[in-house]
């Protein structure tokens, strides 16, 4: 048995696939690709496959990790990649297969690029100005749902970095937010709260997860 970390890209129509459905989707792809996965030995055997950092519905991603266990020690990572890419639906692509260098628990942050489309340039500019003031104030409260119920929390401590640029009616927010099992900030909640505090209303947004980072800001590998 050999462990492998698949890195996939999610875009296009595939971004509307939920975390649970992604699991189903990849199980089928692995079967089609005829990749010998190790199966769990329970009542309802299924291929061992773990998505390390669940992605929210509607968000694209450049490089997301899945851990798998291969039954066959001989198969090369290149083969796994090319076989999977031959059968994956449009919008899902394996960009890399590696040996997982870090433990899944080391994921602590994620870098996002959020594009906010406004009706006019003035809206984008005022959003940028107000948003930076809000972030500097260090206080931005939102209701956050967790297993223990709904709680009002300050989102600012979960924002490690945030750069905003405005061009025409578009504002681009590049932010590093908490991610992982200990503390997680959904970029959707972040941007909606930020817009609300900035008294701005965008017409549409695009959220792309660029990369996953460790606590010290190192790239998760």
């Amino acid at each position: 048995m050999k462990c492998a970390r698949l890195w996939y890209k999610k875009s296009g129509m595939a971004i509307y696939t939920s975390h649970l459905d992604m699991n189903r989707c990849f199980s089928k792809a692995v079967t089609r690709a005829d990749i010998p996965l190790w199966y769990t030995e329970g009542f309802n055997p299924h291929p061992y496959m773990t998505f390390l950092a669940p992605l929210a519905l509607g968000q694209s991603a450049k490089r997301e990790p899945i851990d798998i266990k291969l039954e066959d020690d001989e198969i090369t990572f290149d083969r796994v990649k090319s076989r999977l890419n031959a059968v994956l639906p449009e919008g899902l692509e394996i960009v890399d297969v590696t040996e997982g260098r870090m433990k899944p628990g080391e994921i602590a942050k994620a870098k996002y690029k959020i594009r906010c489309f406004f009706i006019c340039e003035a809206d984008a500019v005022s959003f940028r100005k107000n948003a930076l003031n809000v972030l500097n104030s260090g206080e931005m409260f939102a209701e956050k749902r967790s297993k223990r119920g709904v709680k009002t929390v300050n989102l600012c401590p979960m924002v490690s970095k945030c750069v905003i640029t405005a061009v025409d009616s578009l504002a681009v927010v590049e932010a590093v937010l908490s991610a992982g099992n200990n503390e997680n900030l959904n970029p959707q909640l972040f941007i909606e709260t930020l817009a609300q505090y900035s008294e701005s209303e965008f017409d549409d947004i695009d959220i792309i997860r660029q990369s996953l980072l460790t606590e010290s800001g190192e790239l998760f590998e």
Binding site: M13, Y16, T17, G58, P89, G91, D204
Partner: peptide
């Protein structure tokens, strides 16, 4: 596009399946 995330199970309405 901008309305898709407001509905239950948007994957019903996108097409593009394998």
């Amino acid at each position: 596009k901008k309305h898709l995330l407001k509905v239950q199970k948007p994957g019903r309405y996108t097409g593009g399946e394998l």
